[in-house]
Simulated scan of single mutants.
Amino acid sequence: MAKRDYYEVLGVSRDVSAADLKKAYRRVAMKHHPDRNPGDEEAENKFKEASEAYEVLSDAQKRSAYDQFGHAGVDQSAGMGGGAGAGGFGSFSDIFGDVFGDIFGGGGRGRGGPSRGADLRYNLELSLEDAVRGTNVQIKVPTLVACDTCDGSGAKKGTSPKTCTTCGGIGQVRMQQGFFSVQQACPTCRGKGSIITDPCGSCHGQGRVEQTKKLSVKVPAGVDTGDRIRLSGEGEAGAEGGPAGDLYVEVHVKPHEIFQRDGADLYCEVPVDFVDAALGGELEVPTLDGRVKLKVPAETQTGKLFRLRSKGVTPVRGGARGDLMCRVVVETPVDLTGKQKELLKEFQATMKGGKNSPRQSSWFDGMKNFFGDMKI
């Protein structure tokens, strides 16, 4: 049975934000969770389907691949065995706690631990040559890194955070709402589970400081504008020693003075003087691999495309190398001398209308038909 579209499974649009995506998943997961529907195989399958959809769409890299290639783009990495998928259901109370935690100012299930740092994005401009061949670039990224003085704990050197006595280090407290018992973030430690009584002087208890990191980025051959390179763990450091987020390097290929890229193919315009276009000739044209000869047959017209096979781009995701498409532009001569003008007039006198200029002749015939045989 064919898989349903992940956005359809969660009932969201393709431009849904991360926050709204999470809310949509919670609604579907709560409705079909096996704890609420014991013995209901259809509900269990729908819960697994929603978990798989959320696992892919909540990951920026997987979501990008899914948006471009559908299920084929994520089938190798997405599965039903992770998180709350087929291998083990997240408990209903976990999802239920998430919803009410958000309503009452908390932040989901047990927050008694350091949180992951934010992901970062860096826009990388590349020349067409570097994008096609691949390269290594050095970048500078302003970010938050773990404080060296306190090793990211936020506490003064020689001290450590104290377990919160209000929540006992869990980061959550329970409150009674009628016949519901609802969890919310501990108001004393704000869900952290610990309190810093003697903060570090370098980071003022935050566990992180601002720093510009120098990173080396390996750009694979064949990347194009919009492609992203993920550097795991190079995002912002997590608060209080938490794991760092990721850095996403987004590629932007600068315009080229000769070539335009369309997928795996390259296009360029080749100016040809009208004598070579009429009589035929051989030209040198540029490629990314160097110059090659292009034979122009006699009577070539402007707009004629010549294909140079395998002179384009090898896509970053694999596949055959593209072609170079050369579009001929017949160039009218300028700055003519008196002698050259006389020769052209003599040449013009020898022209035999439609025989030498069939396109011009057919165009005038069309004009006559359009205006009802009006003399032009």
Rank of each mutant, 00 (worst) to 15 (best):
Q183I: 06
T149E: 13
E125R: 13
T149H: 07
F96Y: 09
G193H: 09
F96G: 05
D151G: 09
S115E: 11
A146W: 06
Q183R: 14
S160C: 02
Q172P: 00
P114G: 15
T166V: 13
Y122K: 10
L144P: 01
G117A: 04
G168H: 09
Q183N: 13
P199I: 05
C167E: 12
Q177F: 14
L128Q: 05
I103E: 06
T149Q: 12
C167V: 10
G101I: 01
F100A: 01
G83T: 03
R121K: 04
R133E: 11
K157Q: 08
F100N: 08
D148S: 08
G158P: 08
T135Q: 02
S194W: 07
F96P: 00
S194H: 11
I196C: 10
V145N: 01
A118M: 10
F100L: 13
G106K: 11
V132A: 14
F179W: 12
K192R: 15
F100W: 08
G101M: 03
A118G: 06
F180V: 05
T135E: 05
G158F: 04
F89P: 00
R174E: 14
D119L: 03
L126G: 09
T197S: 12
G169M: 08
C186W: 01
V145L: 02
G110W: 10
G87A: 13
R190V: 09
R174I: 08
S93W: 04
L126A: 10
A78S: 13
G117F: 05
S160V: 03
P161Y: 07
K162T: 14
A185P: 01
T165H: 01
R116K: 13
I103S: 02
S181Y: 00
F179G: 02
D119M: 07
G107Y: 10
A78R: 03
P114R: 07
C164S: 10
R174P: 00
F100T: 13
G97M: 06
V132R: 10
P187F: 03
L120W: 02
T165C: 01
C167W: 09
C147Y: 02
A84V: 00
G171N: 12
L120M: 06
C189N: 05
I139V: 14
S181R: 12
Q76A: 15
T166Y: 09
C147Q: 04
A78C: 07
I95R: 06
